[in-house]
C-alpha cells in the first residue's frame, strides 16, 4: 500500500499542521511504513477472536450522579493562551 501525498496533506489539514513539501514527503514515507506494519498484522488469523475495542475487561465503569468541586475561575483560566475578563479568548469565529 502506498500513501499518496494528498492523503498526507488532507490529514495534516485536519490536524491543523502546516507542512512544507519536504515534510509532506518525509511523513508520507513514515506513515507508509506504519501502514505496512498494520498490513502485516492484518494477516494474522483472528477469526476465532472476539472483536473488541478494549482488552482491560472492565465494563460499566460508571459513577453515581453526584456533584463535586469545580475549579475557581482563576485556576480554570490559568493556562489560557489569551483571556478576556473571565473568558478564554480565541480568534474571531464566524458562523
Amino acid at each position: 500500500m502506498t500513501l499518496a501525498r494528498d492523503q498526507v496533506t488532507h490529514v495534516a489539514m485536519l490536524a491543523r499542521l502546516g507542512l512544507s513539501d519536504e515534510e509532506v514527503e518525509r511523513y508520507r514515507q513514515q506513515l507508509d511504513a506504519i501502514l505496512a506494519h498494520v498490513d502485516r498484522l492484518q494477516q494474522v488469523d483472528t477469526s476465532q477472536v472476539a472483536e473488541t475495542a478494549q482488552i482491560g475487561g472492565l465494563v460499566n465503569a460508571w459513577r453515581e450522579d453526584v456533584r463535586g468541586e469545580c475549579l475557581p475561575v482563576e485556576k480554570a483560566l490559568a493556562n489560557a493562551p489569551k483571556r478576556r475578563r473571565d473568558h478564554f479568548e480565541v480568534g474571531a469565529i464566524q458562523e
Binding site: V66, R67, E69, C70, A76, D86, F88
Partner: peptide, 22 residues
C-alpha cells in the same frame, strides 16, 4: 445533577463564565 464525565453541575444557566469547570 452532574456532567457526563465529571462532577461539575449539569445546570450551568446563570453561572458566571467558566465557573462551572474542572
Amino acid at each position: 445533577q452532574s456532567k457526563m464525565f465529571c462532577g461539575c453541575s449539569a445546570d450551568y444557566i446563570g453561572s458566571p463564565p467558566n465557573s462551572n469547570t474542572c
